[in-house]
Nucleic acid binder design. Structure first.
Lengths: 339, 339
DNA sequence: TGTTAGCACTCGATTGTGTTGAGTGCTAAC
DNA sequence: GTTAGCACTCAACACAATCGAGTGCTAACA
């Protein structure tokens, strides 16, 4: 048995009805709305086929049908109707732009903006940065034997940490040390730099000793750059979906959001742009009835992060994919250095 | 009628039983647990009195009694038993310390740590910073006509923003400008500095023009320093309390957390250290059945922020107050500059 | 005067029983 | 292949019955 055109149209009508109503769709209503001009009995026959093929699920015998994950998958890949209009996208774009003014905290601001604009839970994977190339290093005196280390990389992303230094060093001394460090480290990746710093710390090199906490520094750099980071925003949005009227369901969802390990796996950058994972495709048990739409964004040259939204599988996929595409564009734009 | 010693003991037993069980407390169980050696009938008489006085609430005629906000208030002010042991505090302290390594993002890290350690929702009010005094200013080249502005203040808090500069300026030129700016601005408050910057932008002063986006800069400084910020962490924790088994309740709570205006009012620093607001005392309608414990923390000299936890009024007050005291100490410690 | 045993009473929670109605599957006719 | 007709199913709802924890009150007691 294959999915002919009529079955496809019926399936589409069911999916779209269910996305709006969140109630099982019956043959009667369907015969009116799907526009095929056939009776409910015919629809019933088709629906029985679609159920047998695994596209529809019957909660119980006298209820209508609910789309399965397989149905959504078909819906997303073979059908893709009604995305957002150009105007809708533009107005969302403006709203998004106004919310990511500062590049520094793109993760938290981005997650907040994305969740607010989509009404889903937003995820932002900030990529590991140990492959970024060092452009320059700067030391700024904070007083009290501490200095702020600012690392400028080729992607414009800035890492800053406060480190301990000898309190004898004044502003200009620190400036000079910064210049010296820049000279030595320029062009290295952050990982290479870290290793070089560990090397200095091990040797009792005269230059090394000017920074009393140089091993500390290397460790800090490692900590901040070696791991990906996942930021979650708008988790509470799911409470507004009737799917999560049961608190235990909501709890399971939120607990899954705390498991950064599996989230990272889920958000691992994909080659192929915007990517939809439906239900079991997410690989996360608590997301069995959820869908996740991911989109990459580029930071500088080639380093990619991921943004995502997560919500009930009953999701207006086309619209959300348009949204995610726009977010991805905007972030990449905002984070690229123009020079 | 006044609250004599026996009434007090009964009230205490009820509050403590209810905090643990979250079910209305009956006279029968109470006569066994409160250790007064009187029968349930006697207890019933006392409970009737306490109900009349407004300390207890009867959900319905055949249920036990539930403490009112007034009862919790009495419990917190007149009785205060069983806080945390020295060991418990020390072990929590160690856990907390290990989680606020970086001073930079004390708000988000602090909120996360506090909510994890208390299992309540954590709030952090980062104080307005426009009264902080400028210690030094630094400009770091980012390439592409942008520079990072770092402002070091007397409390060691650093604000950094990326601003637009003339692309002709190289690292050393920016360093010199930074020194110059430091000379002029040192000792001013951030607010005064902002006004001076606006002044520069208005005049066509030669010095002003080196920074092409000087008005932009002033606006940024204003935006980042003029407003208090509230950071929320662990909002999902409330889903674990049976009080919020109903999603609408959980939703109301989370919505209240989005209303930064009233939260700020709630978190406005208090003179008197750790402060407990019970139910209506919070002044927030959605927190009618919640309690909020706030504690101040000091940033540098005199500028205070606030940390808080929010959760069901049924809360182990003494333990939580001990916790908050410890957090407050630790944060103040971590944020004070030793020089 | 305070305490206690006894007892009738209340009312939420639980369980059980119809009733309803949306929606199905099947069959026979078109 | 399509459709009308019809028996059937089963969640949802409403309603009644039962249960029991806990009360308030009264009368007896120390």
């Amino acid at each position: 048995m294959d999915v002919d055109d009529r079955k496809l149209r019926i399936l589409q009508a069911i999916v779209e009805d269910y996305i709006l109503s969140n109630t099982p769709v019956g043959s009667r209503t369907l015969s009116k709305t799907c526009g095929l001009g056939v009776s409910s009995a015919t629809i019933r026959n088709e629906m029985a086929d679609l159920t047998e093929m695994g596209y529809l699920i019957q909660p119980h015998v006298s209820a209508g049908r609910v789309p399965s994950a397989k149905a959504y998958r078909l819906y997303v890949t073979r059908l893709r109707p009604r995305g957002m209009t150009e105007q809708e996208i533009e107005s969302a774009r403006r709203a998004f732009r106004s919310r990511i003014r500062d590049m520094e905290s793109v993760d938290s601001q981005g997650a907040a903006a994305i969740s607010d604009l989509t009404h889903y839970t937003a995820l932002v994977l900030t990529p590991r940065q140990s492959d970024l190339k060092v452009r320059s290093l700067h030391l700024i005196p904070l007083g009290g034997g501490r200095a702020l280390l600012v690392i400028v990389t080729d992607s414009g992303v800035i890492r800053d940490t406060s480190i301990r230094v000898s309190s004898r060093l004044d502003a200009s001394a620190l400036y000079t040390i910064g210049q010296m460090l820049t000279q030595r480290m320029q062009g290295l990746t952050l990982r290479q730099m870290r290793e070089m710093l560990y090397g200095y710390a091990a040797s009792s090199d005269a230059d090394a000793r000017v920074l009393s906490g140089i091993a500390d520094l290397a460790a800090q750099v490692e900590k901040q750059t070696e791991t990906d980071r996942v930021t979650v925003g708008g988790a509470h949005n799911i409470l507004y979906y009737p799917e999560y009227a049961d608190v235990t369901a909501a709890r399971a969802f939120m607990d899954a959001l705390e498991d950064t390990g599996s989230l990272m796996h889920l958000l691992r950058p994909q080659e192929n742009g915007i990517c939809v994972r439906i239900g079991p495709e997410t690989g996360i048990d608590a997301f069995r009835d959820c869908s996740v739409i991911t989109a990459p964004y580029r930071v500088g040259r080639g380093h990619t992060g991921t943004i995502a939204i997560a919500g009930p599988s009953r999701m207006p996929y086309a619209r959300m994919m348009d949204m995610m595409g726009m977010f991805s564009q905007e972030l990449t734009d905002a984070l690229s250095i123009k020079d």
